[in-house]
């Protein structure tokens, strides 16, 4: 019976498109199509402008004066940007590793066990995602300043820098990883674990050979999300950074603030390219 209904459903859908009066469709349909194209233009026009003018030889961003790779050359000789990129990679890499491990563990705990205080733990996990990043940023700033002063008194003073940025990024990335991994665990067919136990696998082997490989896409997805968010983060980083710990977004911000130059366009184009490669790569991985 159910197979009959499912096989009928797509057919019914096709019919609905043709069964309605032709004229009525074409008007609504045309409006829908216009909206579709407008939205896509809205999405892609700014990106196109950035890319085009990154190859402009002139300084003015919107007056085409001829093709040139000068801004890319300038970009590659800019040591500040190289350093910022390095800092960004360190922050994103370290915070991703830490938050992926902790987020996966906590997701397993939350999905598999019932315990007192689970509801509080749940809220504590969701809040960092919900709270605006500006609020997250200032509270971490206050915390680090206070903690720094306190620890300085007993000789363990520290100042804002890469360390505090990483600590801050882990604080919100755990939640993102946990959400993604939990979604994967919630879909998990428990009878697969039962089958493993039935086939002489103890708890550890069940986890090692069945659970872990099956939730791996979720873990990798969570890690990728954490990495992207960390790399992208400006506000929290802005407030928890110190001298010498400028990340790429911070660098871009100060460049934008001091004035628009095609150099930023060149940088943007490269970053666009990098994130496309990253995203398409992860999509290809997921398809496997």
């Amino acid at each position: 019976m159910s197979s009959v209904t499912t096989s009928l459903a797509p057919a019914a859908k096709v019919e609905s498109a043709t069964a309605l009066p032709r004229r009525a469709i074409s008007l609504t349909e045309r409006l829908l199509q216009v909206n579709l194209w407008l939205v896509f233009i809205f999405f892609y026009a700014p990106i196109a402008v950035l890319i085009i003018f990154s190859f402009n030889s002139g300084r003015v961003v919107s007056q085409w004066e001829g093709f040139s790779l000068a801004w890319y050359a300038k970009l590659f000789s800019n040591r500040d940007i190289g350093l910022a990129l390095y800092n960004s990679m360190v922050v994103a890499g370290v915070s991703t590793v830490i938050s992926t491990i902790m987020g996966t563990l906590v997701a397993l705990g939350m999905e598999r066990f019932d315990f007192r205080g689970k509801l509080s733990m749940d809220s504590m996990l969701y809040l960092p995602i919900i709270i605006p990043d500006i609020a997250m940023a200032v509270m971490l700033l206050l915390f680090f300043v206070q903690a720094g002063q306190l620890l300085a008194r007993i000789g363990f003073g520290f100042s804002l820098g890469l360390g505090t940025i990483i600590l801050a990024h882990v604080a919100f990335n755990i939640s993102y990883v946990a959400v993604v991994v939990r979604a994967r665990l919630a879909d998990f067919d428990k009878s697969l674990e039962e089958a493993a136990r039935d086939l002489y696998a103890n708890e550890w082997n069940t986890f090692r050979y069945v659970t872990l490989p099956l939730i791996m896409p979720g873990i990798l997805g969570g890690a990728l999300l954490a990495f992207t968010i960390s790399l992208d983060d400006f506000v929290v980083t802005f407030f928890t950074s110190g001298p010498g710990s400028t990340t790429l977004p911070l660098r871009i911000y100060s460049m934008v603030k001091t004035g628009i130059t095609p150099e930023i366009n060149a940088l943007s184009t490269l970053m666009l390219l990098a994130s496309m490669v990253l995203v398409l790569g992860s999509l290809a991985l997921q398809r496997k």
């Binding site: 067919d189 009878s191 697969l192 039962e194 089958a195 493993a196 136990r197 039935d198 086939l199 002489y200 696998a201 103890n202 069945v210 099956l214």
Partner: peptide, 18 residues
């Protein structure tokens, strides 16, 4: 526990490791 019993199960929806 299941892994110490000399019995094996054919599960309702097979539960084959995908």
């Amino acid at each position: 526990p299941a892994y110490r019993r000399p019995v094996n199960t054919v599960f309702q929806r097979y539960a084959l490791f995908p």
